[in-house]
Design a protein around this nucleic acid. Structure first.
Lengths: 337, 337
DNA sequence: TTGTATGCGTTATCAA
DNA sequence: TTGATAACGCATACAA
């Protein structure tokens, strides 16, 4: 593969001139510039980022750590997040190195990922809640941003994050159900090891409390964000003696699974059971009935997160974290009592 | 960040000894080895792949080109593919560099992607059918594998690919409908610019022909693989004077959209219209009614493709392409006439 | 405007 | 068993 030396030889100049042309320095004669460009074209030369990275000590690439754990990864939601990430990377001209993080490996050695491939920063998507490794890279001053994994209140203040207002969104959903006259409200929760699962549960509990409704442990079922567990947890809830009249699911997939469970039992949504989801994934609009859910700006979150990260890298400053607004989208899966 | 030199100084040896320890060479005294390992641990040293890559002329990373075009990227199907890709990369210890390829940029300069970041090979997912750039990297001997984008019959023989038997699968689906007594069979096709869209269309047409059924242009509607176009194309089909009794959709998402359209019109699936999909995504099993569809081994395809690619890279041989079997999964969305 | 020397971190090769 | 030297491709600093 052609290097600057080859180009230089072909153009009859020194390789430094080639380097200057590539880096668009001004101090190079237009004639020689043309000669060099011609040689570059003819040889199909492209700069080698290894050499450049070694020299400049940066690679113009970021590492993206994404949870492969179980089914999370195959969720529309994470894809949408990734699309936002990808978009900003493309705009900024940054490469994306994917680090799928398996849950079975226990701890993730972010430091290693960072150092080995010499990425300029790390985007860490949905890290486990208990993640001492994060503290290590804070101390080592590795530039990183946490996307979708900030547990409100409990986090290290020095950690920059981008996340939806999970507590607020959950609260809005539950308050809506209460306002529609519901009192027996169950919750199909997300994984406790994931921050947004915990935050949405928190929003659920605190809103009940604020409205003077005591929560029943029976009414809280932990799922894993997949449609299938939504289905089974709903079946469980339907089997209760004192059946809830409404269910708030921690995400849309589980809500859709829950709807199916209700309908299969011969009951109706929202006739017999009202259901609210979270995320507003594309299919929420098209489910039957259309799902009332908490909309979050998923794509924008991914986009913002990388923007923040790259700004941090370039300006070497401490960016502000961002909590993105959520908004309840009322469709047809809730009946007022 | 610590380099081999730093480790060497700390351990009181030369940096070559450090290099040897890292590369697990045998010719190093156990005592010195322990000293070095201790220093490595204390300094938090990790090898710098830039330096190594520059020297060895390989990076142990592959480039994954994936279509961001429109909505394709956010499809469960591609995620499943990616999971397989990721899995084998993890096993082989290879890094994954993601190159999202926008359709608006026209041609994709694979050569550039390959050379710039010095990946060891490229996995090209669902390239545009007319892709002259592919021929270029064939000529330049860039190791690459095409995943899910091989148009049966028409491709350059030297291109290694992994794909499902799209023609065969489509054929099986349509034959099944015919065997159930259907004659008026429509097709909601995928994008023509994507090979599997074309191949499934081909399977549809050829199977009708084989059974002596002439195809009507009215009965072929081109969608873009999303649920929403499935919905609209089905509405169009329902509006025809001579309504079809069965529809073969080029993927499950469109099939699910189509089911919704039928049901919204007050008709039933499979009562009034039978529907068959392709892919067998998770939600196919849970749709209402459960979708009869062509199962393909999506995860395994991703896995196999990388396996092939990495074998090619390591052994510098010309691997065989693989066509993966498909299998019709009969559920409840087809009625026999 | 252009060219030369140097070093980034690593490994291959040869010498001790 | 260990160490010295050169080279990979590039860009910075300095010299011509």
């Amino acid at each position: 593969m052609a290097s600057q030396r080859d180009v230089a030889k072909k153009a009859g100049v020194s390789f430094m001139t080639v380097s200057r042309v590539i880096n668009k320095k001004i101090n190079v004669d237009e004639n020689t510039r043309q000669k060099v460009l011609k040689a570059i074209r003819e040889l199909g030369y492209y700069p080698n980022v290894l050499g450049r990275g070694l020299n400049r000590n940066k690679t113009e690439a970021i590492g993206v750590v994404i949870p492969t754990c179980s089914h999370l990864f195959s969720t529309q939601y994470y894809l949408e997040l990734l699309r936002g990430v990808e978009q900003y990377c493309a705009i900024a001209g940054y490469g994306m190195l994917l680090y799928p993080a398996r849950d079975d490996s226990g701890m993730i050695d972010y430091q290693k990922l960072y150092q080995e491939r010499r990425v300029d920063g790390m985007l860490i998507i949905a890290p486990p809640v208990k993640d001492d490794q994060l503290k290590i890279i804070v101390k080592k001053k590795v530039p990183f941003v946490v996307l979708d994994g900030h547990q409100a209140g409990s986090s290290d203040k020095r950690i920059v994050f981008v996340d939806a207002d999970n507590r607020g969104g959950a609260s809005e959903a539950v308050q809506y159900l209460i306002d529609q006259g519901h009192k027996k409200i169950a919750h199909i929760a997300g994984w406790k090891t994931v921050a947004n699962g915990r935050d949405r549960l928190f929003g659920y509990k605190s809103t009940l409390k604020k409205n003077g409704i005591s929560h029943k442990d029976d009414y809280i079922r932990e799922g894993d964000f997949t449609e299938i567990t939504g289905y089974y947890k709903m079946k469980d809830l339907l089997g209760l003696k004192d059946r809830p009249t409404a269910v708030f699911a921690a995400n849309d997939l589980m809500a859709i699974g829950a709807i199916r469970a209700v309908q299969e039992t011969g009951l109706g949504v929202p006739g017999d059971i009202s259901i609210v989801g979270f995320d507003d994934i594309p299919s929420a609009k098209y489910s039957n009935p259309p799902l009332t859910t908490v909309h979050q700006m998923t794509f924008q979150m991914g986009f913002e997160a990388v923007k923040l990260l790259i700004e941090n890298i370039l300006q070497d400053k401490w960016a502000e974290s961002r909590v993105m607004e959520t908004k309840l989208v009322v469709r047809e899966s809730v009946k007022s009592l």
